[in-house]
């Protein structure tokens, strides 16, 4: 990890216009990604993690979705404003994505070779034969045994874990600068989860790829990430280096999350902590801290206004009235 910033997301807002109202799935998200960094985005289901990342490569289904504001700066350009053709030359090439469910993310009707080769041919302008050799190399790197044989098979001939390895190989086949992995292990067996995470960590470290890792679980980010963003109801409520977040969590939500991680070093027998209540739905949410109904330290001001992000040092920032002076 260096100090060079390669991706800068600023005040990103993505709204869905639905029959029930405007869903503010992402509402003012800001973060930086450095070269070679691994950044974790943690949050409950529905907090807007996936939408944030689809917005980065501008793949929000429209209608109903629309990027309502903000910037995504990459290589001096604002991805939000790029034409579709310019975007295409970045997708899968400079920024690639891996999705949650490997069982459905590969096209069941096309051979693995077809699916891998088309990306390589498209972005690297190689001929088919070289592209196939490259694809086989990538599969080998991703830990697929006998890749020369397996590359000509169809997805249904692979297990879930194997398919995720294929997805990773495919995602990294054009040497992207950024790999976005959206819950890459949630759909897999626990035993395989660790292998896949190790593979991502290992490969991206070798290739110098920066990673945005989306997950539900603090346990996963702890072992993988340099930096953590905690998302709640479409906003990043706290972000900072992993050690800072775990040692000195500021936001009551982060504190709750950390308390609810099962840990070996704590005395067993204690009941696991869980944050009371449900996350809000993000339709027509008023301008308040969306966490206040579940927060033990809620104050009057929390119901009236959303707090600005405050830098508490060491690259650690938090959006909470406990740390910001109310005007």
């Amino acid at each position: 990890m260096t100090e060079e910033i390669i991706l800068q997301v600023q005040d990103l807002k993505t709204y869905f216009h639905t029959d029930e109202g405007i869903v503010k799935a992402v509402d003012g998200v800001t973060f930086d990604l450095h070269k070679g960094e691994t950044l974790g985005i943690v949050g409950e289901s529905g907090s807007g993690k996936s939408v944030t990342n689809l917005s980065i490569i501008n793949m929000i289904p429209n209608p109903p979705g629309k990027i309502a504001g903000g910037q995504v700066m990459y290589a001096g350009k604002d991805l939000v404003k790029l034409t579709i053709n310019e975007l295409r030359s970045i997708r899968g090439n400079k920024i690639s994505m891996i999705f949650q469910d490997p069982m459905t993310s590969l096209n069941p009707y096309l051979r693995i070779s077809t699916q891998m080769i088309e990306t390589i041919v498209l972005h690297q302008k190689l001929d088919k034969k070289t592209a196939k050799a490259k694809a086989i190399d990538m599969l080998k790197l991703a830990g697929i045994p006998a890749p020369e044989k397996r590359i000509d098979q169809y997805p249904h001939q692979f297990s879930g874990g194997m398919r995720q390895r294929v997805m990773i190989a495919m995602g990294l086949s054009c040497n992207p600068e950024i790999l976005i992995a959206d819950e890459p292990t949630s759909a897999l067996d626990v035993t395989i989860q660790a292998q896949i995470l190790d593979l991502i960590k290992d490969l991206t470290a070798r290739l110098g790829t920066a990673v945005i890792l989306i997950t539900h679980s603090l346990g996963v980010v702890a072992g993988m990430c340099d930096t953590i963003c905690v998302m709640y109801a479409g906003r990043i409520v706290e972000r900072g280096p992993t050690t800072e977040i775990f040692d000195k969590p500021k936001h009551p939500y982060t504190q709750g999350l950390i308390k609810s991680v099962p840990r070996l070093d704590k005395t067993s027998g204690d009941r696991l902590y869980s944050i009371r209540g449900q996350p809000p739905n993000v339709i027509d949410l008023p301008d308040c801290c969306p966490f206040y109904p579940r927060c033990d330290k809620a104050m009057d001001v929390c119901k009236r206004k959303y707090p600005l992000s405050k830098d508490v040092g060491n690259g650690h920032a938090v959006s909470c009235w406990l740390y910001t002076e109310a005007k």
Partner: peptide, 11 residues
């Protein structure tokens, strides 16, 4: 999902 993948590849 696999169409989302195809689009994310820049096709």
């Amino acid at each position: 999902d696999y169409i989302r993948t195809a689009r994310a590849k820049g096709l």
